[in-house]
Simulated assay, not measured.
Amino acid sequence: MGEDGPAISALICACPPLDTNSAYCNLLQCTHFARTCVVAERDGLIVGWISAYRPPEEPHRVFVWQVAVHPSARGLGLGCRMLEHLIARPALQGVTTLTTTITEENGASWALFNSFARRQGAKLARRPIFDRDAHFAGAHDTEFLVSIGPLAAPNIPSEKEKS
């Protein structure tokens, strides 16, 4: 997935209001967290990306850092399908809660995560976590911690069922 770094950086730039991380940060996500990141392709082009990780102190959680869907692929449910694919991965066995942060004004992210919670039959809770003034010196909007859970047990086929 490391070779996808430049395409992922370009996708994130095409998806405001996402924060544009450094290319190096995106490469680290693609390599160090490959088991908890998702890439969606259409006709050989990357049109979707999720970066996520399991916080070491909270292995029952997965933290979704970014979800990017190219403008040409929006409105097709790709974001929700990528989240469902993510939580069904063996690397996330035992995860019961999905968390992320969202600014108040990011309507697209609120819609995505509310839809995901409904599809999971889970509750969505939110609270401020990083305050505009206290944490960002007024340079970034307040981030709300969003928790969705409990997650539905994924239907992962056993090794026998795969063959």
Rank of each mutant, 00 (worst) to 15 (best):
D4H: 15
G5E: 08
G5C: 08
P6T: 07
P6V: 08
A7R: 10
A7K: 04
A7M: 01
A7F: 01
A7L: 02
I8P: 00
S9Q: 11
A10H: 02
L11T: 13
L11W: 12
L11Y: 14
I12S: 00
I12L: 02
C13T: 10
C13S: 14
A14H: 01
P16I: 02
L18H: 06
D19E: 12
T20L: 06
N21A: 14
S22Y: 04
Y24L: 00
C25I: 02
L27T: 15
Q29M: 10
C30F: 00
H32N: 11
H32R: 12
H32C: 10
F33G: 00
F33H: 13
A34D: 07
A34L: 05
R35N: 12
T36A: 08
R42L: 01
G44A: 10
G44H: 12
I46M: 07
I46G: 09
V47Y: 07
V47R: 11
V47M: 08
V47A: 09
G48W: 08
G48Q: 08
I50K: 02
I50H: 02
A52L: 03
Y53L: 06
R54T: 14
P55Q: 01
P56T: 11
E57F: 13
E57H: 11
E58H: 15
E58I: 07
E58Q: 15
E58D: 15
P59L: 05
H60E: 14
F63H: 14
V64L: 07
V67Y: 10
A68D: 07
V69E: 09
V69C: 10
H70F: 04
P71W: 04
P71E: 02
P71L: 04
S72M: 07
A73K: 03
R74D: 09
G79Y: 00
R81G: 11
R81P: 08
M82R: 10
L83A: 05
E84Q: 15
L86F: 05
I87P: 02
R89I: 03
P90G: 04
L92G: 05
Q93M: 01
V95P: 11
T97A: 05
T97F: 06
L98N: 04
T100N: 02
T101G: 07
I102H: 04
T103W: 00
E104Y: 01
E104N: 01
E105I: 09
E105Q: 11
N106T: 03
S109D: 00
S109G: 01
A111P: 02
F113K: 01
N114F: 00
N114A: 12
S115R: 13
F116I: 00
A117F: 13
R118L: 07
R118E: 06
R119E: 13
R119F: 04
Q120Y: 10
G121W: 12
G121E: 12
A122R: 07
A122M: 09
K123L: 15
L124C: 13
L124T: 12
A125S: 14
A125Y: 06
A125E: 14
R126F: 00
I129H: 06
F130E: 03
D133S: 11
H135C: 14
F136L: 04
G138W: 06
H140M: 07
D141W: 03
D141N: 10
L145W: 06
V146M: 11
I148K: 03
G149Q: 09
G149K: 06
P150S: 05
A152V: 12
S158L: 03
K160E: 15
K160I: 14
E161F: 01
